[in-house]
Structures are given as structure tokens and as C-alpha cells.
Design a protein around this nucleic acid. Sequence first.
DNA 1: ATGGTTGTTGCACAA
Length: 256
Amino acid sequence: MRLATWNVNSLKARLARVEEWLADVQPDVLCMQETKLADDAFPALTFAALGYESAHHGQGQWNGVAILSKVGLTDVVANFADGGEPDPDARIITAVCGGVRISSVYVPNGRSLDHEHYQYKLRWMAQLRAHVAALSSPDEQVVVTGDFNIAPTDLDVYDPKKLVGATHVSEPERAELAALEAWGFTDLFRQHHPEGKLFSWWDYRAGDFHQGRGMRIDLVLGTASVAARCDFAIVDRNARKGASPSDHAPVIVDLA
DNA sequence: ATGGTTGTTGCACAA
């Protein structure tokens, strides 16, 4: 099973590139973030014509998450399912595909450490843990994947010294991510690339992609039984090149 | 130290 995650930064603006990419890469499951579409504007028929079932949790204008699958799509849950307050933003959707319970997540950016949005980000990560624990257990096949807006370690940013005091790298949000992993997840990309300074997002500005100034903030977390099946992981940098790319590249993992 | 680009919406803001 080939599973991918991609923050497309507007599915309306990116649909042609996503269609082209699906035909090229042939993933069995694609989790998308930042569709920026209302549910009634989601191009489900376009994806159906390419052989994918789909589920979308959108709000229009901002956020919006989706899952496409060629290997079944059941038990769809939009938003959190931990019994707490629902997220007012459309940032998480969960479904079972090919025997794996998969959540496509768009973690709040945080904006800056002194911003209210940063506290929302920390609360959101805590509720994500509650959501995962409510729906599944670590001995099952579970994946949480998407744009975490958190670089797990300094190996995941181009220049840690330039980012001191900034969101995406701060200790409290890294601790939230570590707590999620401690529940029973492995970072599937890092498992296959233990040393690499390899990124999944580059700012559109100032030639950052060309200059290699990026971060690895798009993650695929899998439980032990998923990690044991994972025999390949890559960032598809080609999708960040060319005309009208997203500022994120897809992350692809293969499960035997 | 700052700004730079893109997308959405509407003439700013989020990323």
C-alpha cells in the first residue's frame, strides 16, 4: 500500500497538479491538507474518475482536509472524536483504508510564541492525542499524517540558529509531538532517513526552495505494526518544482 | 534586520 500526505495549499488552485501527480505516483491513499474548499465544492467526481473514493472535511477559504483511497474508505469521522469540544476549524478527518485507521491532520500554525494561536496549537495537539486514544490502540494499525507545523528536531530545519524563538521549533510544541509519538507512533520517514537534512516545506519567498532553506513539518506517524511494514519513504521534491507548485512537497511511504 | 511569494478575499490576512 502506497500512502502519501500533501498540503496542497488550495485544491482549487492545485487540482491540475494533483491529478497529474496521482497519475504519476499512483498512491493507494492520499491525505490532503489546506484544500480551502467547502464540502460542496470538493471535486469528488474528478477523483472518482481516477479510481478514488474520497472523504472531505472542509469549511471554505481556509483549512480543509481530505482522504482519497483506492483500498476502501470506511468509518469516516470528521473533526475530533474524543468527546471534547469540536474544533471550529476543519483540521482533521479520519477513516479506515485497507485495514489502517488513518487521520489526515492540519495542525494549527501557531503564528508566534506569544500569539493566542500558539496556545490553540498546543491545545490542539493534546486533543489529537485524546482523539487517537479514543478511536484506537497502539497495537492496531494506525496512521496520523499531515502538516504538523512542527519540525521534530533541529535536524528537520535548515538553520536552527535562525529559528530560535520561532514557532515550529519551540520546546513546548515539540514536547506535544513527542507525547503523541510516545503513545505508540514511529516517524516513518525518519526511520528510513536517520541522518538526512531533508525537508517537505519551503517558503515561496526569496528562492528558499532553490537555496535549500526548508523544514520537515509534514509527517507520517505509524504504530509499530505499520512501521514494520514500511519499506520505503521519500519526499517527492519534484512536486515542489515547475509551474504553480504548493509550498509543500508530498511525503510518500510504502507499506509491504 | 528586513523582506521576499502565494492564495483567498475583497482593497488585508494567513501561511
